[in-house]
């Protein structure tokens, strides 16, 4: 082992260890953070950016922890040694370096962040508009072009969809994990969310903003289908064979016998 704390061999060994750990940690992080199905074009953009972030996290975590652990082993006090450590109070060049380099990294990631944001929020010319209404504790989806209303969200694959959303009571949040993107529904205003489903399948739209008693069960089914099936579904709905709609959230808490917020308030 080199004696001096500023011996170059320390830095070479630590550097190699940091590199190895970064690779291992990157693999580990991506294993313990499994993303749901990549179900939309927006998901591809977001997952790409997430992946870069995770690699950066792996590197920075390794950098700090490996150097820390290296110090703990190499520079630990020997038994009976009461002397002091090497006296250096700081290094201005180093301080400037680890201020400026992170600053550059911040701006690089900021740039990619802005680009990704404009990608995932960009409007497409041929959008399907759905008016989404949230209420305690259910969802209502209305298709203004065809006048169809439903408690189930059905969308064609590979076609941009635009949710124009509002809430009847408290704040809710529209989230289909497979589509990645999320947007709050605020009473008194209309918010917009765009996504383009890319994989057919059955998903759920979950309320992501605490909205009272049955927030946990404010979930509605989502089906992403082929264009033809979507049109057929719309036609069936327009013909009036639709089942009755849930207009209030009362049925969702039938399994619990506690008071709803509204009841408690009127006491």
């Amino acid at each position: 082992m080199p004696k001096s704390a500023t011996d170059i061999r320390h830095f070479i060994i630590a550097g190699v260890l940091v590199a190895i750990t970064t690779v291992l940690l990157d693999l580990l992080l991506k294993a313990i953070l499994p993303m749901p199905v990549q179900g939309s074009h927006q998901a591809q953009v977001i997952d790409q950016l997430t992946s870069w972030h995770l690699t950066l996290i792996a590197f920075l975590f390794s950098l700090v922890v490996v150097i820390m652990l290296y110090s703990l082993f190499v520079f630990r006090k020997k038994d009976g040694d009461e002397s002091e450590g090497a006296h250096f109070e700081g290094n201005t060049v180093l301080e400037i370096a680890w201020t400026v380099i992170p600053l550059i990294v911040v701006f690089v990631f900021g740039f990619f962040g802005v680009r990704a944001l404009s990608d995932v929020t960009r409007a497409a010319p041929d959008e399907i508009t759905v008016n989404v209404t949230g209420f305690q504790w259910s969802w209502l989806f209305e298709y203004p072009d065809s006048g169809v209303a439903s408690n189930e969200l059905v969308l064609p694959v590979d076609r941009a969809a635009r949710m124009d959303m509002t809430s009847r009571d408290v704040i809710h949040s529209f989230w289909i994990p497979e589509m990645r993107v999320k947007q709050d529904l605020v009473p008194g205003m209309t918010t917009t969310l765009r996504f383009t489903p890319s994989v057919t399948g059955e998903y759920t739209v979950d309320c992501a903003e605490l909205c009272g008693l049955s927030h946990y069960s404010m979930v509605a089914p989502v089906r992403i289908v082929e264009q033809a099936e979507y049109e057929q579904w719309l036609a069936e709905r327009t013909a009036g064979t639709a089942p009755a709609l849930a207009q209030t959230g009362d049925e969702t808490d039938a399994d619990t016998d506690v008071e709803t917020d509204a009841d408690a308030q009127s006491n």
Binding site: I67, M68, S71, F75, R76, G85, F88, N91
Partner: peptide
């Protein structure tokens, strides 16, 4: 980074 600089080359207990 400054914490790392503090530990590096010390006599850690």
């Amino acid at each position: 980074f400054s914490w790392l600089g503090t530990m590096w080359g010390g006599k850690l207990s």
